[in-house]
C-alpha cells in the first residue's frame, strides 16, 4: 500500500512519455479541434449571431474547449481496450502492485495530456481573437473546471475500455456518443434556434452546462445563447459539478471493480 502513490505516478509518467515518444498523439488530439476553430470562427461564425461583445469567437472557444476535453474520452477507452487486447493488463495484474494503481495512474495521465492539449487550444483561441476578460483567477478556474470534467469523463473511458471487446469499436462508439452530445448543445450555436424538445435536451446536456459554466467564468454575459429557462441553463456551474460528481460516483467504483475482475472472467 505504501507504494500505491509512486506506482500510480509510474503509470501516469507512462502516459506523459507517450507524448514524447509518439508526438503524433498530441498532434492528432489538437488538429481536429483546431480545424473546428477555423471552421466555426471563419466559415459558420459569420452567420451565427451570438450577441456577444467581442464577437462569436468569445462564444465559440469555451465550446471548443469542452468538446476537445470530451473527445479525449474515446482515446482513453480505446487505449485501455488496446492494453487489454495486448495482454498488458495481465502483466500489470501479475505485478505486486495494488489493483487501483493502474486505473488511477491512467486517469491522471490522461489529465496530464489534457493540460497540454488545452494549452495548445488556448493558444489557438488567442491567435484567432479569443480574449477572456474576467481576470486571471477566473480564467484559471475555468481551466481547472475543464480538467476536472475531463478527469470525470476519463473514468467513463476506463470503464468502456475495460468492458469492450475491440479497440476500434470503442473508438467508433466513443465518437458516436461524444459527437451528438457536443453538437446537440450550446457549444457552437445558441439553443434558441432548435426545436423545443431538442432545446430541453440541449440545456440539460452536461456539455452545455460545462460550456455555459466556462463562458460565465470567462466573463461572458449571455452564457447560454438564449435559454428555455431550464434549471441547468440558469445554474450551469452547480449543474456541471453535480454531473461530475454523479459520473465519478458511478464510474469510479465500476471501473475499479471491472479492472479487478477483468482477469477473472
Amino acid at each position: 500500500m505504501k507504494y500505491a502513490i509512486s506506482d500510480a505516478w509510474v503509470i501516469t509518467k507512462r502516459q506523459l512519455l507517450l507524448l514524447i515518444r509518439v508526438p503524433e498523439v498530441l498532434i492528432f488530439s489538437t488538429i481536429q479541434p483546431v480545424m473546428f476553430v477555423i471552421l466555426f470562427r471563419y466559415v459558420f461564425g459569420g452567420s451565427i449571431t451570438s450577441g456577444q461583445p467581442g464577437g462569436y469567437v468569445q462564444f465559440l472557444m469555451p465550446g471548443i474547449f469542452v468538446q476537445t476535453v470530451a473527445f479525449t474520452l474515446a482515446g482513453t477507452a480505446s487505449g485501455v481496450a488496446e492494453d487489454m487486447k495486448k495482454g498488458l493488463i495481465d502483466r500489470y495484474q501479475s505485478l505486486p502492485i495494488s489493483r487501483s494503481v493502474f486505473v488511477i495512474g491512467k486517469t491522471l495521465g490522461d489529465s496530464a495530456l489534457n493540460i497540454v492539449v488545452l494549452l495548445v487550444m488556448g493558444l489557438a483561441g488567442f491567435i484567432v481573437g479569443w480574449r477572456p476578460h474576467s481576470g486571471f483567477l477566473k480564467v484559471m478556474l475555468a481551466f481547472v473546471f475543464l480538467l476536472a470534467f475531463g478527469y470525470a469523463l476519463s473514468w467513463i473511458g476506463i470503464f468502456v475500455g475495460l468492458t469492450a471487446k475491440d479497440a476500434r469499436v470503442v473508438q467508433n462508439v466513443g465518437f458516436l456518443v461524444t459527437f451528438p452530445l457536443t453538437f446537440l448543445s450550446n457549444a457552437f450555436a445558441p439553443t434558441t434556434g432548435m426545436p423545443k424538445a431538442l432545446q430541453y435536451f440541449a440545456e440539460w446536456n452536461p456539455v452545455s452546462t460545462m460550456v455555459a459554466a466556462c463562458r460565465q467564468l470567462f466573463g461572458l454575459t449571455n452564457k447560454f445563447g438564449v435559454t428555455a429557462g431550464t434549471y441547468p441553463s440558469t445554474h450551469p456551474l452547480i449543474m456541471s459539478l453535480v454531473y461530475m460528481v454523479l459520473v465519478m460516483a458511478v464510474f469510479v467504483p465500476l471501473s475499479v471493480r471491472s479492472y479487478a475482475n477483468s482477469a477473472k472472467k
Partner: peptide, 28 residues
C-alpha cells in the same frame, strides 16, 4: 513469479528501454 503470455505484453507506444524501466519501477 514472472509471467510471459502468448502475446507480447509490452507497451508498443514506448521503446524497449522505457518498458523495462517502467516495469522495474512497478517492481519497486
Amino acid at each position: 513469479i514472472g509471467l510471459s503470455g502468448q502475446y507480447a505484453a509490452v507497451d508498443e507506444t514506448l521503446n524497449g528501454w522505457d518498458n523495462l524501466v517502467m516495469f522495474g519501477r512497478l517492481y519497486h
